[in-house]
Amino acid sequence: MTALRIGKGVQILLLAALYVFLYGPIIYITYVSFQANSVWPFPPEFTAKHYISLWNEENYHSGFVNSLAIGIGTGVIASVLATMAAVAILKYRVRRSVYIAGLFLMPLFIAHILIGVSSLMFNKMLLGLPGNIFSAILANATYATAFAFLVVVAQLARYDWRLDEAAMVFGATPGTTFREVTFPLIWPAILGAFIVSFLLAFNNLEISFYNLGATPTLPTLAWGSLRHGVSEELYALAALINVAVFIFLGVMYVLLRTGVVRLDYKD
Protein backbone atom coordinates (compact mmCIF):
# COMPACT_ATOMS: atom_id res chain seq x y z
CA MET A 1 0.00 0.00 0.00
CA THR A 2 2.75 2.44 0.87
CA ALA A 3 4.67 1.39 -2.20
CA LEU A 4 1.57 2.22 -4.20
CA ARG A 5 1.32 5.67 -2.62
CA ILE A 6 4.97 6.38 -3.31
CA GLY A 7 4.41 5.25 -6.90
CA LYS A 8 1.49 7.61 -7.27
CA GLY A 9 3.46 10.43 -5.66
CA VAL A 10 6.32 9.93 -8.10
CA GLN A 11 3.87 10.00 -10.96
CA ILE A 12 2.31 13.28 -9.82
CA LEU A 13 5.78 14.73 -9.38
CA LEU A 14 6.78 13.70 -12.89
CA LEU A 15 3.58 15.11 -14.35
CA ALA A 16 4.28 18.40 -12.60
CA ALA A 17 7.89 18.29 -13.85
CA LEU A 18 6.67 17.68 -17.39
CA TYR A 19 4.48 20.77 -17.23
CA VAL A 20 7.30 22.86 -15.82
CA PHE A 21 9.55 21.55 -18.60
CA LEU A 22 6.92 22.22 -21.30
CA TYR A 23 5.64 25.54 -20.01
CA GLY A 24 8.74 27.04 -18.40
CA PRO A 25 10.15 28.23 -21.71
CA ILE A 26 6.75 29.42 -22.90
CA ILE A 27 6.05 31.41 -19.76
CA TYR A 28 9.58 32.77 -19.67
CA ILE A 29 9.51 33.94 -23.28
CA THR A 30 6.16 35.61 -22.66
CA TYR A 31 7.74 37.41 -19.71
CA VAL A 32 10.78 38.39 -21.78
CA SER A 33 8.53 39.75 -24.52
CA PHE A 34 7.49 42.51 -22.13
CA GLN A 35 11.02 43.28 -20.90
CA ALA A 36 13.34 46.03 -22.03
CA ASN A 37 16.43 43.90 -21.38
CA SER A 38 15.84 40.53 -22.99
CA VAL A 39 19.13 38.89 -21.97
CA TRP A 40 18.91 39.27 -18.21
CA PRO A 41 15.48 40.78 -17.52
CA PHE A 42 15.89 41.10 -13.77
CA PRO A 43 14.74 43.22 -12.07
CA PRO A 44 11.79 43.57 -14.47
CA GLU A 45 11.49 46.66 -16.57
CA PHE A 46 8.25 46.44 -18.52
CA THR A 47 7.87 47.68 -22.05
CA ALA A 48 5.69 47.07 -25.10
CA LYS A 49 8.41 47.96 -27.58
CA HIS A 50 8.84 44.43 -28.95
CA TYR A 51 5.15 44.30 -29.76
CA ILE A 52 5.34 47.70 -31.40
CA SER A 53 8.30 46.72 -33.55
CA LEU A 54 6.52 43.47 -34.49
CA TRP A 55 3.51 45.53 -35.54
CA ASN A 56 5.67 47.95 -37.55
CA GLU A 57 7.41 45.18 -39.47
CA GLU A 58 5.42 45.05 -42.74
CA ASN A 59 6.79 41.57 -43.54
CA TYR A 60 4.95 40.08 -40.62
CA HIS A 61 1.65 41.40 -41.90
CA SER A 62 1.84 39.51 -45.16
CA GLY A 63 3.38 36.58 -43.28
CA PHE A 64 0.36 36.49 -41.00
CA VAL A 65 -2.09 36.60 -43.90
CA ASN A 66 -0.23 33.82 -45.72
CA SER A 67 -0.02 31.66 -42.61
CA LEU A 68 -3.72 32.20 -42.08
CA ALA A 69 -4.45 31.15 -45.66
CA ILE A 70 -2.32 28.02 -45.33
CA GLY A 71 -3.92 27.20 -41.99
CA ILE A 72 -7.49 27.62 -43.20
CA GLY A 73 -6.91 25.88 -46.53
CA THR A 74 -5.19 22.96 -44.87
CA GLY A 75 -7.74 22.84 -42.07
CA VAL A 76 -10.68 22.64 -44.46
CA ILE A 77 -9.11 19.97 -46.69
CA ALA A 78 -7.85 17.88 -43.80
CA SER A 79 -10.98 17.96 -41.66
CA VAL A 80 -13.32 17.23 -44.58
CA LEU A 81 -11.23 14.35 -45.97
CA ALA A 82 -10.57 12.93 -42.50
CA THR A 83 -14.20 13.12 -41.41
CA MET A 84 -15.40 11.37 -44.56
CA ALA A 85 -12.89 8.57 -44.10
CA ALA A 86 -13.48 8.22 -40.35
CA VAL A 87 -17.25 8.04 -40.81
CA ALA A 88 -16.85 5.48 -43.60
CA ILE A 89 -14.50 3.28 -41.61
CA LEU A 90 -16.39 3.43 -38.32
CA LYS A 91 -19.90 3.32 -39.74
CA TYR A 92 -19.67 0.74 -42.50
CA ARG A 93 -17.05 -1.54 -40.97
CA VAL A 94 -16.08 -2.91 -44.35
CA ARG A 95 -13.60 -5.75 -44.14
CA ARG A 96 -9.99 -4.68 -44.59
CA SER A 97 -10.89 -1.06 -43.85
CA VAL A 98 -7.93 -1.24 -41.45
CA TYR A 99 -5.65 -0.81 -44.50
CA ILE A 100 -7.46 2.38 -45.41
CA ALA A 101 -7.01 3.56 -41.83
CA GLY A 102 -3.31 2.73 -42.22
CA LEU A 103 -3.11 4.90 -45.34
CA PHE A 104 -4.65 7.84 -43.49
CA LEU A 105 -2.28 7.43 -40.53
CA MET A 106 0.82 6.88 -42.69
CA PRO A 107 1.84 10.57 -42.85
CA LEU A 108 2.44 10.45 -39.07
CA PHE A 109 5.38 8.16 -39.74
CA ILE A 110 7.06 10.27 -42.40
CA ALA A 111 9.49 13.02 -41.46
CA HIS A 112 8.26 16.49 -42.42
CA ILE A 113 11.46 17.32 -44.21
CA LEU A 114 10.79 14.41 -46.57
CA ILE A 115 7.24 15.57 -47.24
CA GLY A 116 8.62 19.05 -47.86
CA VAL A 117 11.42 18.24 -50.28
CA SER A 118 9.57 15.46 -52.10
CA SER A 119 6.59 17.64 -52.92
CA LEU A 120 8.93 20.47 -53.88
CA MET A 121 10.68 18.30 -56.42
CA PHE A 122 7.55 16.51 -57.57
CA ASN A 123 5.79 19.78 -58.28
CA LYS A 124 8.74 21.40 -59.92
CA MET A 125 10.19 18.54 -61.95
CA LEU A 126 7.12 16.57 -62.99
CA LEU A 127 4.32 19.11 -62.92
CA GLY A 128 6.37 22.20 -63.70
CA LEU A 129 4.67 24.09 -60.88
CA PRO A 130 6.60 26.77 -59.04
CA GLY A 131 6.31 26.86 -55.27
CA ASN A 132 3.35 28.87 -54.10
CA ILE A 133 0.76 29.01 -51.38
CA PHE A 134 -1.39 26.31 -53.00
CA SER A 135 1.37 23.74 -53.19
CA ALA A 136 2.16 24.55 -49.55
CA ILE A 137 -1.49 23.95 -48.61
CA LEU A 138 -1.58 20.63 -50.45
CA ALA A 139 1.66 19.41 -48.89
CA ASN A 140 0.59 20.49 -45.40
CA ALA A 141 -2.80 18.84 -45.86
CA THR A 142 -1.21 15.40 -46.20
CA TYR A 143 0.05 15.10 -42.65
CA ALA A 144 -2.69 17.35 -41.25
CA THR A 145 -5.21 14.83 -42.60
CA ALA A 146 -3.56 12.17 -40.46
CA PHE A 147 -3.91 14.30 -37.32
CA ALA A 148 -7.47 15.26 -38.19
CA PHE A 149 -8.27 11.60 -38.79
CA LEU A 150 -6.95 10.69 -35.35
CA VAL A 151 -9.02 13.40 -33.67
CA VAL A 152 -12.23 12.47 -35.47
CA VAL A 153 -11.80 8.72 -34.95
CA ALA A 154 -11.08 9.25 -31.26
CA GLN A 155 -14.25 11.25 -30.84
CA LEU A 156 -16.46 9.11 -33.04
CA ALA A 157 -15.49 5.92 -31.26
CA ARG A 158 -18.32 6.74 -28.88
CA TYR A 159 -20.90 7.50 -31.49
CA ASP A 160 -23.76 5.01 -31.67
CA TRP A 161 -24.17 4.35 -35.38
CA ARG A 162 -27.49 2.65 -34.78
CA LEU A 163 -28.90 6.18 -34.46
CA ASP A 164 -28.25 6.50 -38.20
CA GLU A 165 -30.09 3.25 -38.80
CA ALA A 166 -33.01 4.52 -36.76
CA ALA A 167 -33.15 7.66 -38.90
CA MET A 168 -33.07 5.57 -42.08
CA VAL A 169 -35.95 3.38 -40.93
CA PHE A 170 -38.01 6.50 -40.26
CA GLY A 171 -37.54 7.68 -43.80
CA ALA A 172 -34.26 9.65 -43.84
CA THR A 173 -32.05 9.18 -46.92
CA PRO A 174 -28.27 8.85 -46.28
CA GLY A 175 -27.87 12.56 -47.00
CA THR A 176 -30.71 13.57 -44.70
CA THR A 177 -29.44 11.20 -42.04
CA PHE A 178 -26.09 12.96 -42.05
CA ARG A 179 -27.69 16.40 -41.91
CA GLU A 180 -30.34 15.61 -39.30
CA VAL A 181 -28.60 13.16 -37.01
CA THR A 182 -24.91 12.49 -37.62
CA PHE A 183 -23.62 16.00 -38.19
CA PRO A 184 -25.46 17.69 -35.28
CA LEU A 185 -23.92 15.07 -33.01
CA ILE A 186 -20.38 14.92 -34.37
CA TRP A 187 -19.65 18.52 -35.36
CA PRO A 188 -17.49 19.17 -32.28
CA ALA A 189 -15.19 16.38 -33.47
CA ILE A 190 -15.00 17.92 -36.94
CA LEU A 191 -14.32 21.36 -35.51
CA GLY A 192 -11.65 19.85 -33.26
CA ALA A 193 -10.02 18.26 -36.29
CA PHE A 194 -10.14 21.61 -38.09
CA ILE A 195 -8.56 23.45 -35.15
CA VAL A 196 -5.72 20.94 -34.83
CA SER A 197 -4.94 20.85 -38.54
CA PHE A 198 -5.28 24.63 -38.82
CA LEU A 199 -2.77 25.20 -36.01
CA LEU A 200 -0.32 22.62 -37.36
CA ALA A 201 -0.30 24.16 -40.83
CA PHE A 202 -0.33 27.74 -39.55
CA ASN A 203 2.82 27.08 -37.55
CA ASN A 204 4.52 24.63 -39.88
CA LEU A 205 8.00 25.45 -41.05
CA GLU A 206 9.60 22.44 -42.67
CA ILE A 207 6.90 21.67 -45.20
CA SER A 208 5.85 25.20 -45.99
CA PHE A 209 9.48 26.32 -46.30
CA TYR A 210 10.25 24.07 -49.26
CA ASN A 211 6.96 24.65 -51.04
CA LEU A 212 6.48 28.37 -50.72
CA GLY A 213 9.01 29.88 -53.03
CA ALA A 214 9.34 33.49 -51.99
CA THR A 215 6.03 33.73 -50.12
CA PRO A 216 6.66 34.57 -46.46
CA THR A 217 4.76 33.02 -43.56
CA LEU A 218 5.17 33.66 -39.85
CA PRO A 219 7.31 30.54 -39.28
CA THR A 220 9.57 31.21 -42.28
CA LEU A 221 10.03 34.82 -41.16
CA ALA A 222 10.84 33.63 -37.67
CA TRP A 223 13.31 31.16 -39.12
CA GLY A 224 15.03 33.91 -41.11
CA SER A 225 15.14 36.19 -38.13
CA LEU A 226 16.51 33.46 -35.85
CA ARG A 227 19.21 32.61 -38.38
CA HIS A 228 20.59 36.13 -38.17
CA GLY A 229 20.65 36.16 -34.39
CA VAL A 230 17.43 36.60 -32.47
CA SER A 231 15.58 39.77 -33.15
CA GLU A 232 13.49 40.74 -30.21
CA GLU A 233 10.12 41.00 -31.91
CA LEU A 234 10.26 37.18 -32.15
CA TYR A 235 9.54 37.01 -28.42
CA ALA A 236 6.39 39.01 -28.94
CA LEU A 237 5.41 36.78 -31.84
CA ALA A 238 6.00 33.60 -29.83
CA ALA A 239 3.97 34.97 -26.92
CA LEU A 240 1.08 35.90 -29.20
CA ILE A 241 1.06 32.53 -31.00
CA ASN A 242 1.06 30.72 -27.68
CA VAL A 243 -1.90 32.76 -26.49
CA ALA A 244 -3.73 32.01 -29.74
CA VAL A 245 -3.06 28.27 -29.40
CA PHE A 246 -4.42 28.37 -25.87
CA ILE A 247 -7.55 30.20 -26.91
CA PHE A 248 -8.20 27.63 -29.64
CA LEU A 249 -7.64 24.71 -27.30
CA GLY A 250 -9.85 26.37 -24.71
CA VAL A 251 -12.62 26.58 -27.29
CA MET A 252 -12.08 22.91 -28.05
CA TYR A 253 -12.20 21.98 -24.41
CA VAL A 254 -15.43 23.84 -23.83
CA LEU A 255 -16.96 22.23 -26.90
CA LEU A 256 -15.97 18.74 -25.86
CA ARG A 257 -16.95 19.12 -22.24
CA THR A 258 -19.85 21.43 -21.76
CA GLY A 259 -21.44 21.67 -25.19
CA VAL A 260 -25.14 20.96 -25.58
CA VAL A 261 -24.14 18.02 -27.69
CA ARG A 262 -22.33 15.37 -25.71
CA LEU A 263 -20.64 12.61 -27.59
CA ASP A 264 -20.60 10.40 -24.57
CA TYR A 265 -24.34 9.89 -24.87
CA LYS A 266 -25.04 6.28 -24.14
CA ASP A 267 -27.24 4.82 -21.46
Partner: peptide, 8 residues
Protein backbone atom coordinates in the same frame (compact mmCIF):
# COMPACT_ATOMS: atom_id res chain seq x y z
CA UNK B 1 2.96 23.28 -26.89
CA UNK B 2 3.28 20.93 -29.84
CA UNK B 3 0.82 23.02 -31.81
CA UNK B 4 2.93 26.16 -31.45
CA UNK B 5 5.31 24.96 -34.10
CA UNK B 6 8.92 23.95 -34.01
CA UNK B 7 10.56 27.27 -34.76
CA UNK B 8 8.90 29.29 -32.01
Amino acid sequence: PFLTGEIL
